[in-house]
Each structure stands twice: as C-alpha cells, then as structure tokens.
Design a protein around this nucleic acid. Structure first.
Lengths: 335, 335
DNA sequence: CTGAAAGCGCTAACAA
DNA sequence: TTGTTAGCGCTTTCAG
C-alpha cells in the first residue's frame, strides 16, 4: 500500500505538507503543491479513509437500517437517500432486519462499531429502548417511514392516519358501506396509524365498523392473498376493502382472480403506497401515493444536518402529504 | 468515547489483556477474563472498527456497485448479497451509478478509499480499464449479472444468450414467424448477449431476422412503451415481441392497452427476469426467470472466498440456469 | 512556508 | 498468564 509517507519521500517534503495539499489547506507554495500532486499522481496514491477517520473521528458514512430491500416500497427510498447522501459527501452502509428485533439491535451495534456518523432507520415498535439509549448519547438518528414515538428522534414520514382516512373516505364516497380492512404488521407504528385512520373515517361517516372484517396482515403479498381468501369464504362479504399496502392488495388480486371473481365488480380494492407496478396491473389499483424518493432525500438531508450541527432548531419531524391515485379498482355504488 | 484504555484501567489490566479477551485469544485466566468482561459491560465499551481496521488492514466490509436499486431486478440480488455477507461477518457499502461511466469510476475510488475488502459490481462495458487496473493490484472483485469479459474477474450470471435463445424459441414453437425484439442498453454485456441469443434462435429455425423489428431499448419502462408505440405504428407488424427485460414489457403493456389493443391477441409478449409483479399483471407475463437471490448469495460467497484466500482454484465464473415461465401473454398460432 | 512529533484506538511481537 | 512497546496512516499543534 502506498502511504502519505511514500508521497512525502518522493516529493521531498514532509508528511505534513502532503497532508496540507491533500486537504487544500493554505500556506503551501505553488511549487511544492505541484511537486506533491505530481508524486501523488505517479504513485497512484489514495488516502486511507480508515486512518483519516480514526484521527478525525468522522467517517463520512451513514448507516441505513430497513426491514427488507426486496419490499418494493423501499428501493425508491434507498435511492433517494443514496443520491442525496452522495451529493453531500457521505456513503451508505446498508443493513436489513426482516423486522426482527434482534437483527435491529445487532444492526445498530454493528453500525456503531463501524463508526458511521449517523443512522437512518425504519424500526418496529419493539426496539424502542435501543433508540432511547442512543439518544442519551446524542447520536444522530433519523427515522423514516415509521416513527417510534417515544424517542425524541425526528422522523420523515407521511401522515399515515390521515392517508388511511382519505383512502377509506374515498370508498365511502363511492357509496360503499360494507368495508373491510387488512392491516399491516401491528408491531409497526405505520400499521397502527392506518388502522386508526380507517376507523376514524368509518366513524365520521357513520359507517359500521365490523371486527370480523378487519384482518391482521403483515405487509406481505402472501398474507394479502390469504386474507382475501378469508373474505371470499365469508357468508357476508364486504363490498370494498382497504389494504394497508399495495403488496397485500396484489395478493388479493391473485386470490380474487383465482376464484373467478372480478375487480371491482365483486370487490372494490384500494391499496396504499402506489408502488411502481400499481399502474401496470389490470384493473389499475386505486391507492395512496407516497413520495418515497423525496422521503429518502429529506431524511438524508436531515441526518447530515444533524451530523454537521447545522440545525437551527432541534430536529423536527417532517410530514409529507400523500395523494389519492384513482384507477379502476374501486366501483361506484348507486346509493 | 470509551476506549480500550479505559477498560484496561477499570479492570486493572493492560490493554493487551483486554484485546485478548476481546478477540477470544487463549492465555487469559478465567478470573481476569471475567473482570475485563465486567469492565466492558459497565462502561458500555464498543471496540472501534476504524482502529481495528487500520492495524489489521481489513474492514470486514464489502462494496456493492449497481446501476439502480429502484430497478426491480436488483433488490432481490442485493438482499441475497446482504444476507449472505452478514452471515459471513461482512457488511455492505452500497453505491449506485445510473450506468454512468464517471459514477462507476468514482464509486470504485470511493470504496477503495473506504478500504472495503472487496467489491461486487454490475458495470457497463465502458468501464473496463478501471477493472483491469484493479486486477493488476490483485484486488478482489466479483461481477454480477453482467460480465465485462476482458477482465479476468469472475462473474455470477445466467447464460443470457441461451436464455434469450430459449425465449425466442418458445415464440417460434408457438407458431410465430414475425418476431420483433427490443434490446437492453447495448452498452451492457447482458443486452448484447440477449440480442445474440435472439438472432441465433431465429437463424436456427429459419425465421427471418428483420432489422426494422429490432429496436434499441435501455431496460427502462418508458423506453419499452416508446418502442411498442413504434411497433404499433408500423404498417407491417410483428406478431410477437421479445423484450430484453420485464420492465420494458410492462411499458409495452401500457402502450398496447392505451391503443385499445389486446395481449396476446394483437401482440404476443415475452419478457425476461420474472420480476415479482410479472405474475400479478393481466395477462400474466410469460418470461424467463432468473434466480436473483441465489445470484446474490453466490456472489457474496465467492467474493468473501477470494478475500479470505480460500479458493482452491482461481475464482471461476458461475453460470446459473434461467427457466421459462409460461403465463398468458403469448398466443399459439395455428401453423 | 515547512517540518517534527504527538496521538487517534487498536493489535501483535517480544519480554517478563 | 500478563505487560511493554512499536506501529497501522493520517491530522494537527507547535516550532522553526
């Protein structure tokens, strides 16, 4: 490995001087600067991030902890984070957890030991204490998509309750009064909030809330399919169902088609997230759009702001809007 | 920050001894081991990966460079890599490039400066020299999905030529003789190979190859749509089209439906990759399945094998099989 | 404008 | 079984 010493020797200067030109510090004559640069070039020298990080106590890398990158909701978020972080001079260490509490804890420990400057994460409710601990130490963290409320860490999310409310209200406005819901993983704040939004909308419009039409899901496609099978098997069925995310709605599509039934004639379906393919499937899935890329960008900016201590005020949670995207999966019912 | 020195002081031993228990080295009495562990516990001490990396010249992290994480082809690969790497004690630094040559070069430099132990990458053909350079230095790299042939670095891929051949042959066996193709980004080896496979299949079966039915794409959905528009506008149309990936085929679905045309009645469509949603859309997309998760796992294993010098033979390229998945997007034509 | 030297937190000879 | 010491490659006072 070629080190700063080799460069110094070759350029006939001290390591200090080399370090100076490396970091664009003043007080180096043009002549020596040129010589040093030449030596760097010739030797193909690259400074060691490790050594630099050790002395500066700063790595210019941030950690990202998400449940599952193969869940289509996350890639756009990751992209947003990665692109913005890169622009701001940071790189990304990726950990996934499958929503497992132990994996979450391990990921946190791992990233700390790698000495990332901060972490963006999407945690289940089970891992609160770990966050509280880090908060005491003043370690920079931004939550994304999901907020573990008890911690004081800022989050970048949409208003999930409101979003679910809007989705449900749309169903009601289309004339539906028999409405079911498949929840997300109830260990996740997001899922809880969407359930709340669903309830609130029914209540506001005086529509009956039926326990047996609210099925516990987990944001996975298979579960969406399984829950839909249960709806189909019911003697009294809802006419419309709000799925806590599009992936589960896709599962429902499968189940419905497998039974020779139709959307929206037999069931009106609304999803959440507007993942990329929601527009490709037939009938097009009506859903709530989240600005994932933006969420990612903002989270990266916010975290790096915290790291570099530029926040004017204590870091605030950012809540973006979600928008209804109407396609063909919801039928209008005559009153 | 609490360092190994603090632990040593608290446990009344030397830093060496602490280091020994940290790394499970022998020659530490049970008694002192306990004392040290207690001190570590009480202080909440975490070893600095930076410092360790600096002295060991090993970071236990690997770099991953891919074009775009929001392309649905990659998440499963990333997951496979991440999961396997984690099992083997490595973490993942993620860089994306948008297939841009400069970004590829930068990512390589960045990861080197972060001193990752090795890199898994999916490069365009434009970045050959950079690889050659690293190869001279004996730096461990594994290519995934795409192989830059000139480098001696192993790759983990499917046989893209054969796969495209099989896809095209399926069209022919269904009775099609007017067959078009939308290529991938021709700066990418994979796209070239699929085009070759397409040609070969036509040739073998004596089916005419028409230049004007081979449209240059870029693996993006928009392009798939645009190319499909061109096919639709032709006075003489192909009856079947092989798209170099599913994403472009999805774009084609849009275009076809927008014109009030039907699949497979008006156009038979076959894709490539079998990304998750290929089964959800209507009609189900016939396509070639790639084992993405496996590709990722194997790439991680292979790279780490290279890093740890356990390879029995010089690292070999691994070629996995792809399988035809028949759904409803291809019509059988009476001879 | 330039350099010597201390030290970031850790591991590994080498001694004891 | 334990400790002393010399670095890993870099930045940064502090002196020239």
């Amino acid at each position: 490995m070629v080190t700063i010493r080799d460069v110094a020797a070759r350029a006939n200067v001290s390591v200090t001087t080399v370090s100076r030109v490396l970091n664009n510090k003043p007080d180096v004559s043009e002549a020596t600067k040129r010589r040093v640069k030449k030596a760097i070039e010739e030797l193909g020298y690259k400074p060691s991030g490790l050594a630099r990080g050790l002395v500066l106590q700063k790595t210019n890398s941030i950690g990202l902890i998400i449940p599952d990158i193969s869940n289509p909701f996350f890639p756009a978020i990751v992209k947003g984070i990665e692109r913005r972080a890169k622009e701001l001079g940071y790189s990304l260490l990726l950990c996934t957890t499958d929503n497992d509490k132990q994996e979450e804890t391990e990921a946190l420990a791992l990233l700390r030991s790698k000495q990332v400057d901060g972490i963006i994460l999407s945690f289940s409710l089970q891992s609160q204490e770990a966050l509280l601990e880090l908060e005491k130490q003043g370690f920079p963290i931004v939550q994304i998509d999901r907020q573990v409320k008890k911690s004081g860490y800022p989050a970048v999310t949409i208003d999930n309750q409101k979003s679910a409310f809007k989705a449900t209200e749309f169903l009601i406005n289309q004339g539906h009064t028999k409405i079911g819901h498949v929840t997300g993983d109830l260990n996740v704040e997001t899922a809880l909030q969407r359930l709340d939004g669903f309830r609130l909308a029914l209540k506001k419009h005086g529509v009956e809330y039926r326990e047996d039409w609210v099925l516990p899901g987990d944001f996975g496609r298979e579960t969406g399919k399984a829950c839909m099978e249960r709806f189909i098997a019911m003697s009294e069925r809802p006419t419309a169902i709000f799925f806590a995310n599009d992936l589960m709605a896709f599962g429902a599509y499968e189940a419905i088609f497998n039974h020779g039934l139709n959307i929206p004639e037999d069931f009106s379906i609304i999803g959440h997230d507007n993942i990329d393919v929601a527009s490709v499937i037939k009938p097009g899935l009506t859903t709530m759009e989240q600005p994932q890329y933006r969420l990612g960008q903002i989270a990266a900016e916010k975290l790096i702001g915290m790291i570099e201590g530029k926040q004017d005020s204590p870091a605030q949670t950012v809540v973006l809007e979600s928008d209804l995207v109407v396609r063909e999966s919801v039928k209008q019912i005559a009153p």
